[in-house]
């Protein structure tokens, strides 16, 4: 009850921190897609490069977030950005690489070889093949990777409050340090809500971007023979 009152009194602060939170995750995921998808496509050309890249991305994701923030402080201090928005975005960007690169790589390399041969045989150039066939078919799987990355990083961004990046994590950090359950619960509640809402939004987007044939539109063979 106290918490609801607190929420009611602080709607403006909640809104402001939600916007901060979304801007960190949104910008970082946007950048992660711009880097991860091309990397995922490129490494389909070379199995050795693929295993190295995926290995490195997997190592990055095992670094505890609080340690990653700590590691970045001395490095980014060189350009005067040791704490705040920039390290938070970089951390989310790094953590997003594995799901996005791996899903892109898997999706592209799992495109039916027969489709690739048909595309070549009909006279598509490699880039036409990528644009007209492989990427459209890979989108649902790539989007699934983006969803994983978004949900995961909404949680990680909450911790970025400790390096002064703002966001909903501030409620949690202050709730702990001030032994104030109202702030703690408010922070946890809105981080969870944000994650759920984002996931549903991305699921809807994924359906929209999926070629009609692979979604529920596809009926069985309408006629035998």
């Amino acid at each position: 009850m106290e918490t609801l009152v607190f929420i009611g009194q602080n709607l403006d602060v909640i809104a402001e921190r939600t916007v901060q939170h979304v801007s960190i995750v949104g910008v970082a995921i946007g950048l992660a897609i711009l880097t991860g998808v091309p990397i995922g496509i490129l490494i389909t050309l070379n199995a050795r490069a693929a295993s190295i890249v995926l290995y490195v991305a997997a190592i990055i994701i095992t670094i505890p977030s609080i340690a990653l923030f700590g590691l970045m402080i001395p490095i980014l201090s060189l350009i005067g950005q040791g704490v705040g928005y920039l390290p938070a975005v970089i951390a989310v960007l790094l953590y997003s690489q594995l799901p996005i690169i791996r899903n892109t790589y898997t999706a592209i390399s799992n495109v039916d070889p027969a489709l690739r041969e048909a595309a070549r045989g009909l006279g598509m150039t490699p880039s036409q093949r990528l644009r007209r066939v492989e990427i459209p078919l890979a989108i649902p799987v790539v989007m699934a990777g983006v969803r994983i990355a978004v949900v995961m990083n909404i949680g990680i961004t909450a911790i970025a409050a400790y390096i002064g990046a703002g966001g909903l994590g501030v409620f949690i950090a202050r709730g702990i340090s001030q032994s104030d359950p109202r702030q703690l619960i408010t922070g946890a509640l809105f981080v969870s809500l944000l994650a759920i809402v984002s996931d549903y939004f991305l699921m809807w987007l994924q359906r929209r971007l999926t070629p009609a044939s692979s979604s529920s539109r596809a009926a069985g063979p309408s006629e035998l023979g």
Binding site: A114, L115, A118, L122, G123, V133, P211, S213, S214
Partner: peptide
């Protein structure tokens, strides 16, 4: 080779229709 392939019809056993089109 790309121009050549466009000037030759090609049919494969696995059919290879593009499911996204």
């Amino acid at each position: 080779p790309v121009q050549l392939r466009r000037s030759i019809g090609y049919v494969i056993q696995q059919i290879g229709l593009f499911p996204n089109m």
